[in-house]
Design a protein around this nucleic acid. Structure first.
Length: 347
DNA sequence: CACACGTGGCG
DNA sequence: TCGCCAAGTGT
């Protein structure tokens, strides 16, 4: 038995009895779909009932004032959904004579209705062959077929949309769409799905390859972190001390000056910072601030300060990554770009 | 196109 | 506790 047919079989036996599954009325389905965007069924269900009681028809919805709509929406989150619904209800009254559209291409033009919702309403209410792609579909397809392309990357979205439409059971798009989403919500759950009782476990790539906990892959935002690098320029007999950066951090194998990294912005007046300098370079050291700059990388923002050191003690020779370099011959060294920028800037 | 938008539940 | 996730969309 094929993938979509297995899903539908599972669905017919295991589906929850939800109110919006008893109708093909596009208005009612629209109501449920908007409410369920990024929202769990348990959380959205009371709102669905509340909205249907207050606004049994699009007409009633359109004639309500926005304040009442938002009042009813209170506590659901993503309040633009409520405002967009109100606007859409009025467009349906004016442009569609109060008859809620059922075609994808019409639905997609309405406020608050994107690719997912247009596919959902059109397939559920008119049987149009449009595959829904939501968080559940990403997960089910990613695991079953072993797709590791990140679901939130442009390539990933394209790949999953294509695959979803290839898999679409065109004999019954409505049931298939509901089936794959319900399957993702109840069986192929994000965390600890019970693969032992899964009807698709024999053909599941993720289960076979022990990737259920890994797929789908979602790229993290990686918020930019701030780092404070304090560089020390040590000059002796017309030589300057540089250091090769080690593996496990930015600029691997590139050269820069010896430095102390701190968790905050620092100044020489800062006791802790001065203590660190002395413990590293010797108590008699005399540090002098030269200049600072910001260096913005993809995942981090570097705050860089330069200090010139005088009267330091030569306790660096033991460290392998440190090198004395002739100031005059700097440009002849195997030059890492980074040090070259810094050096050319200050010498 | 990366990001903001809300709230509640879960491990 | 806290990050992740939940039937996405608009900008």
């Amino acid at each position: 038995m094929t993938f979509p047919e297995e899903l539908i079989k599972w669905y017919l036996f295991n589906k929850r009895d939800l109110p919006w599954r008893h109708t093909k009325d596009p208005y009612v389905i629209w109501l449920s779909e908007i409410i369920l965007q990024q929202t769990r069924v348990e959380q959205g269900l009371p709102y669905f009932n509340k909205f249907l009681e207050n606004f049994p028809t699009v007409k009633a919805f359109a004639e309500a004032n926005e304040a009442k709509v938002l009042k009813l929406w209170q506590g659901l989150g993503y309040y633009s959904r409520g405002r967009n619904m109100h606007a859409t209800a009025q467009v349906v009254m004016e442009k569609y004579d109060g008859k809620f559209p059922v075609l994808h291409d019409e639905l997609i033009t309405l406020k608050g209705i994107g690719e997912y919702t247009a596919a959902a309403i059109s397939s559920f209410s008119s049987g149009e062959a449009r595959a829904v792609v939501d968080g559940n579909v990403f997960r089910v397809l990613s695991r079953f077929f072993g797709i590791s392309t990140p679901i939130n990357s442009p390539q990933g979205k394209k790949a999953f949309y294509n695959l979803a439409n290839e898999m679409l059971y065109t004999n019954d798009p409505s049931t298939y769409n509901q089936a794959i989403m319900e399957f993702g919500a109840l069986q192929c759950k994000p965390k600890s799905p019970n693969c032992g009782i899964c009807p698709l476990n024999l053909g599941c790539y993720a289960l076979k390859n022990n990737l259920v906990q890994v797929l789908p892959i979602k790229l993290k935002k990686a918020p930019q972190k701030h780092r404070f690098l304090n560089y020390f320029i040590l000059i002796h007999n017309n030589n300057v001390l540089i250091r090769e950066r080690q593996v496990g951090d930015i600029w691997q194998h590139l050269f820069d000056f010896p430095s102390i990294e701190t968790s905050d912005a620092t100044s020489l007046d800062d006791n802790d910072f001065m203590l660190q300098i002395k413990s590293t370079f010797g108590n008699d050291v005399d540090a002098q601030f030269i200049t600072h700059k910001r260096h913005v990388l993809t995942h981090q923002i570097l705050h860089i300060q330069f200090f010139e050191l005088k009267n330091y003690i030569f306790n660096f020779s033991k460290q392998k990554e440190l090198y004395w370099v002739s100031l005059a011959g700097l440009n002849e060294r195997p030059q890492p770009k980074v040090i070259h920028d810094f050096v050319s800037e200050y010498f």
